[in-house]
Nucleic acid binder design. Sequence first.
RNA 1: GUCCCUGUAGCUCAGUUGGAUAGAGCGGCUGCCUUCUAAGCAGCGGGUCGUCGGUUCGAAUCCGACCAGGGAUACCA
Length: 552
Amino acid sequence: MLRKRLINLLTEAVNKAQKDGKLPSIGLPEITIERPQNTEHGDYASNLPLKLARLTRVNPMVIAKELLTLLPYTEEIESAIAAPPGFINFTLKNNWLSRQADQILQAGKSYGDNDMGHGKRVQVEFVSINPTGPLHVGHGRGAILGSTLANILVASGYEIEKEYYFNDAGSQMDVFKRSLYARYLQRLGIQAEVPENGYHGNYMIDLAKEIIDEYGDKFQKLSESEAIAQLGEIGINKVKDQIKKDLKLLRVEFDIWFREQSLYKNGQYEKVMKLLRGKNHLSEKEGATWFVSTSLGEDKDNVVVRSNGAPTYFATDIAYHYNKFIERHFDSVINIWGADHQGHVARMKAVVGALGIDPEQLQIIIHQMVTLRRGGELVRVSKRTGDLITLREVMDEVGVDACRFFFLARSANSQMDFDLELAKRQSQENPVYYVQYAHARIASIMRLAEERRINYTDGDVSLMTTTPELTLIRKLLYFPELIEMVTITLEPHHLAYYAQELATTFHAFYKDCRVVSDDEAITKARLKLVNVTQMVLAKTLNLMGMTAPDRM
RNA sequence: GUCCCUGUAGCUCAGUUGGAUAGAGCGGCUGCCUUCUAAGCAGCGGGUCGUCGGUUCGAAUCCGACCAGGGAUACCA
């Protein structure tokens, strides 16, 4: 890649300067190449002279000019100039740029892919909510974040497994089952109370009704504990199915649905507790068993086994991560959690460290809360159900593409306002359609070319020399850098911004450059460019889990 | 109290990890459709980057203090 090449060129130049005694021999600072915001500063820029100036106490402009004399001729670079206070600005050659249209075309669908991952096995675990109710918009944010991140990491050569962890054991399940039992009896006209800390949502009433329609009143005849167990199991499965259905609709697929119960059945829980006890990470206090986080730098210890003998959620999460790292040998693990789990981050990292794994191998992405709005108004509760608005309702209202785009257009650590009105409006003010429209416009051009039976495989791309054409190519050339950046930062929101920028650049090109025209040579060249633009735009959208429509 | 996230244009948010004159979309105003999709394009207006200090050639970005909003601080998950 060009960036790396420029770094190499600069490194060689400095080495040479040092060898020739033009620069003091000191260790090289990290050489960074950035893309200047201002296009007048060229395509790439380096602040290396400024960095060297500090270390050598030589005027940065002098260093810059010295380095320039040592840069060799290359086929890509038109000019490298020194700019005050001490930058080196690189500008690419027009004919090199135009040739890249051919290069991208040749790379085809794999354009932008890289091998940063070297096939390393990475697990991305996300959503993972208790099957006690429907998915909400916050869960949708995690789902979209996780699935998009997984797509990006695959493009970067990682071997990815996407996993959903079902908490189907702990005390919340118990509460859910009791709540459902109460609703079931109520529905049959029998006096019953939903537990105070239980699940009071109206969806539980619907669920009870559904079960009665299907199974009748047979659970009423069983003993309470037996009824709760059987009824509960059915209820949990129904909720699970609904969650799976909603996720599928959102285009979120998982490789593995992991059950918390399996940790107990397969003895992982016992094993890890023994392991931690052996390493003195556990201690008994006040009748409970604690994980001694304080000795690992945490500010407080945490209970793993309650005084009643039941493991806490923390305990099962310990077993779960033992399973991920020790039993399944993932090279690294990415967990995506909502902001309400933020307090859990430090202790999980501590646990992983206690298991003998580098805590860096566990990356936890916390996304902040989502606030729903309609126009300016805050909305929380659905008018239809009386419960909190579900993800499903939002998907139905605004559509999956808009849903995915809006969730992706915000960085995970900013709280987001999701405006249903805006997301829904199919008009110019909606960036989703703006991007997709660019794709549809291209498809229309390609259809015309096909109708006229224009074979452009022999198109000469070097005929493209105008600013709109070259700007578009420059934007396409950024795509591989984008993939790398998102892979490193794990911040997929850059995709949404890139998609908009690429669309903008294309629309500008479209306005200025007639593609299918009387000039056969230009037509063929531009068809190549339009073709690769379509490819990259579609790939960007697909990475985001969005569709790239051919007509709108 | 402690910990995490956030504070940038009227609104919603970016800002490539310390770079050059701080950007986009929406909203407002003005123009552009007999030619491949006007769901488009071009232009105008809009800023004390929460506040105050510090670090240095250079700060929206790093450090400290303070202010404001959200979240977490359970033998719930």
